[in-house]
Nucleic acid binder design. Structure first.
Length: 922
DNA sequence: CGGGTGTCGTAC
DNA sequence: GACGTACGACACCCGA
């Protein structure tokens, strides 16, 4: 299909100017905005569209100034440093072969709008490249928006709705209601995107909103009525014209061949190293940049500060002056490689341009094999005036034998990240033997933070250079590739240096704890690479299915919203607990039966459920909320997170995530995908296997209760599990004095609540609330339970005592959880610590067991040539993607390895399922 | 506009 | 005060 890309030049120039630091080239000319725009243009041209136009505003007044003299009156004049970059920008655009359009009397927006619709009408695929949200009004079949700076694409009604909460044809209405302080367009006071979208959802259009202005209550309603006269004008100002008389047509906008010589001269003049490289076919930069004669320099030089009063006393020997090299040529790199190899163990750290290791580009690597001595190897620093660096592929080829040698040990801080990055750049690291994050986690889970800055402060009394010190923060943050190499060396080499020093301290502490060593060496370290593989495998997501579900949920939400408005007699934000409380309790005078932890009236599920018999509204809010949750957290978010490189969804597992030893999952969290309700469970149908493959799910049956049986040794509980009984039914039979087959549904439900409640340290109060019975009855149940399972009572008492005496509790495999508040702090804090103490051995042992199973299963999978992949872990469940013909083999092997991961006093049982998607596999 | 807090809700 | 471990969405508030 023929493509046309329309670039909103003015928008990018302004955005790049504000987003990037005030860079200059060697001659002192400002280049920051130019640099941003050039990078954007290079990215755009990679797609080689047939037609392209770079559209900028022409000087002079436009029809909008005629309509409204105050239009853009608040705009400050263009800063001189930006103005100076306009001409160079046009030269680069010309040299790249792009037509530039400047039309007097209208704005660039109107030119873009007109061309976009004209081209789309001819069947051309139009992409508008802009950072300006106003263009969402133009989205329709054949017209898409991209924002190259943020990497977002808006190409459908659904995408616009996801972003703004309204359809493309409602965008101008939304903009009119909101107003725009930058362009000085008046809107409705206190009406932001949320309020405007809500009104438009209820009344469809600006006309509808204006006609119903009388119904809208509150201060914003008054503001709306005050603004009624102005709104038509605001709407006109916000409307992008699509009928401008133009002298050019789409066919005049063909992309020409670039003028390479001119480009080379321009890039060299402004110091755009990366762009130059690309121009010359990706080879190292040539004579236009300083020759690469630089040698490794010693001594960026810093002195570690003395420990702060609140830090533990540092070993003075550690506070030595660091000597950090920057490696810029092959000779220096080879010298370092020799040094690292001879050391036998070294710390390594990668620097990249993203927190997501599955998207990050490698910018540099640092090493250290001796405290205070480290090197940084920059590979892709790209800013005006950046020195020539070793070619990334060449440097990695030199490093590969070292990094892939299992006999040379590597230490990292959260090395899973670096393993991912290096793997994606063609290096399969071997010999990854130690991780300071995990050393700290195993030594001190529960009491301490394990990030490098905290560790350095606590263990070394040393304040590291913060990332934000070199890269800035918030809107001013720059990618690491634009950090000056000297600053980068100071930061990155220090990371490697500190990692190595931390390892020395933590490894010797670990050495002194024989009970903890196996947890670290046999469970956590082997798991690092397993998790990296699981994350890299990812899961295939049916994004269209989720988008369909999201749209359906949206329709139901709209109905509920309208119903809520009727019942309330006014509009309100259903998503705001505060507004819901004001409405239900202040206006409708419903009783406040539940309070938040801070003592305020609550609008949570329990509270609304409690008043659902008194009024129809609480039920509507509850229904709305359950749908809003699914849409906001899952159906709309997950498809956005699919990795474009792999086409799959990759979570990140935090190995030091939960103090008990459990993993945590994030970005996205795939450990809390719904399953309990039908609407929720449907989301799992979108976690699919590709053609010819199946999803296989294997989960431990009642693993924590089995561990409770093991730890307590309670004869009754152990016997029940050995008999293979339905444990909740068996508990009910014991507690209520029934035969197994006489247990009623309610009795089993109560027994289940007791079983789970006990594991969480719940008391009579909680059980009563849970089961809707009196506290006295709940107390009776618990007493009865303990009389039938006396071993469990003893175990809990023992655990509490151990926690108080030692300050920690242990899992079956020796993992410790320290409980800071077990013998100090408030009464509530101590009670909380006791509950955590009771829960941790069970939750933590379950975590140990599945981690061991994962290591074992992964070792087997490694020999199966990809016929099956481990793709998810959800605390007691492992999920695989597997060739259809290999399912039986996989199941046999996985079940054996999961059940064999621990020898307890009761058997471990694994349930499994197979299907085309995760829902079916249950 | 970004960070921090509060509230709510999903999983095991 | 009263059920353990997580992550994350949205609203709201504050300060730049």
């Amino acid at each position: 299909m023929t493509r046309l890309v329309l670039i909103d030049g003015s928008s990018y120039l302004y955005r790049a100017f504000h987003a990037l630091p005030p860079l200059t080239n060697a001659g002192g000319e400002p280049t920051g905005a130019l640099f941003g725009v050039v990078n954007m243009l290079r990215a755009t041209l990679k797609e080689r569209p047939e037609y392209v136009a770079f559209v900028v505003d022409a000087p002079g007044k436009t029809f909008r100034d005629e309509l409204y003299p105050e239009y853009k009156a608040n705009r400050p004049p263009m800063p001189d440093d930006l103005r100076a970059q306009v001409q160079p920008m046009c030269e680069v655009v010309e040299a790249l072969g792009m037509p530039i359009l400047r039309v007097p009397g209208v704005e660039a927006d109107d030119v873009i709008g007109t061309l976009a619709l004209a081209a789309a009408a001819e069947g051309i695929d139009v992409t508008i490249s802009t950072g300006d949200k106003d263009f969402a009004q133009l989205v329709r079949p054949g017209v898409a928006l991209v924002n190259t700076m943020s990497g977002t694409r808006t190409d459908s009604d659904e995408a616009v709705i996801a972003k703004f909460g309204v359809r493309p044809d409602q965008v101008v209405d939304l903009l009119a209601l909101m107003g725009d302080s930058v362009d000085n367009i008046p809107g409705v006071e206190k009406c932001g995107p949320k309020t405007a979208a809500k009104w438009l959802a209820a009344y469809d259009s600006l006309g509808g909103v204006m006609a119903s202005a009388g119904e809208i209550k509150g201060k914003v309603g008054d503001n709306l009525r005050a603004a009624l006269d102005r709104l038509p004008l605001s709407r006109e100002l916000a409307t992008i014209r699509t009928d401008v008389e133009l002298e050019v047509g789409v066919t005049d906008l063909a992309l020409r061949e670039p003028d390479v010589d001119t480009l080379r001269a321009l890039y060299a003049r402004y110091g755009f190293v990366q762009a130059l490289k690309e121009l010359d076919g990706g080879s190292a930069a040539n004579g236009n940049v300083p020759a690469k004669a630089t040698i490794a320099r010693a001594g960026s030089g810093f002195v570690a500060p003395a420990a702060d009063a609140d830090g533990t006393a540092p070993d003075p020997a550690l506070a030595i002056e660091g000597r950090y090299d920057t490696i810029l040529d092959a000779a220096a790199l080879e010298a370092w490689i020799t040094r690292l190899r001879e050391a036998g163990l070294f710390a390594v750290d990668t620097e990249t341009d993203s927190l997501d290791p599955l998207r990050a580009n490698l910018v540099g690597i640092s090493f250290s094999c001796e405290p205070g001595r480290a090197a940084y190897l920059p590979l892709a620093h790209d800013y005006p005036g950046a020195p020539a660096q070793l070619d990334r592929a060449v440097a990695l080829d030199l490093l590969r034998p070292l990094l892939e040698d299992p006999a040379v040990r590597k230490v990292g801080q959260n090395g899973k990240y670096d393993l991912h990055v290096l793997r994606r750049h063609g290096v399969a690291v071997a010999g990854y033997s130690d991780d300071t994050l995990l050393e700290s986690f195993v030594l001190d889970s529960g009491r301490a933070r394990h990030d490098m800055d905290s560790l350095a402060k606590r263990e070394l009394g040393y304040q590291t250079v913060a990332y934000t010190d070199v890269a800035g923060k918030g809107a001013k943050q720059i990618p690491f590739s634009q950090v000056a190499i000297d600053d980068a060396t100071r930061y990155a080499a220090e990371d490697a240096d500190v990692t190595l020093r931390l390892h020395r301290v933590l490894a010797s502490r670990l050495e002194a704890e024989p009970g903890l060593r196996p947890v670290y060496r046999d469970i956590e370290m082997p798991l690092v690479e397993v998790l990296a593989r699981v994350e890299a495998n990812g899961v295939l997501l049916d994004g269209d299915e989720l988008r369909r579900q999201g749209a359906a949920l949206g329709r139901r939400m709209l109905e509920l919203q309208q119903r809520a408005t009727e019942l309330a007699g006014r509009t309100f934000n259903l998503d705001s607990p505060k507004q819901v409380c004001a409405l239900l309790y202040d206006e409708l005078k419903l009783p406040t039966l539940v309070k938040t932890p801070k003592g305020q009236p609550s609008a949570n599920e329990e509270a609304l459920e409690a008043i659902a018999d008194l009024h129809e509204l609480p039920r509507v809010i509850l229904d709305y909320r359950s749908l809003a949750k699914l849409r906001g957290t899952y159906t709309d978010k997950l498809p956005e997170m699919v990795n474009p490189e792999t086409g799959r969804l990759h979570t990140s597992y935090q190995q030091a995530g939960a103090a008990t030893g459990r993993l945590a999952s994030s970005d996205p969290n795939l450990q809390n995908i719904p399953i309990r309700t039908e609407d929720g469970r449907r989301i799992r149908t979108a976690f699919v296997a590709p053609p010819g493959r199946k999803i296989v799910a294997c989960d431990y049956s009642q693993i924590e209760l089995r561990i409770m049986a093991h730890l307590s040794g309670d004869a009754g509980l152990v016997a029940a599990f050995e008999a293979g009984a339905d444990i909740h039914r068996a508990t009910a039979a014991e507690v209520f004095g029934r035969k197994l087959d006489e247990v009623t549904g309610d009795e089993r439900r109560a027994a289940k609540a007791i079983n789970f409640g006990l594991m969480y340290g719940m008391g009579a109060f909680g059980l009563a609330r849970n089961l809707g019975i009196s506290r006295a009855e709940a107390q009776d149940y618990i007493a009865l339970y303990f009389s039938r399972y006396p071993g469990v009572r003893d175990f809990m008492e023992r655990t509490r005592a151990q926690a108080r005496e030692q300050g920690y509790v242990e899992t079956v495999f020796g993992r410790r959880l320290y409980l800071e508040y077990i013998s100090r702090g408030t009464q509530a804090q101590r009670a909380g610590a006791e509950r955590a103490a009771i829960n941790a051995p069970m939750q933590g042992t379950a975590a140990d067991i599945i981690k061991r199973a994962m290591v074992s299963v992964d070792a087997w999978l490694a020999g199966q040539a990809g016929r099956a992949l481990m793709i998810l872990q959800v605390h007691d469940e492992l999920v695989f993607e597997c060739e259809a013909g290999f399912v039986d083999t996989l199941l046999a092997e996985v079940v054996a390895r999961m059940t064999g991961a621990a020898e307890l006093k009761v058997p471990l049982v694994v349930d499994s399922g197979v299907g085309d998607n995760w829902e079916q596999a249950h």
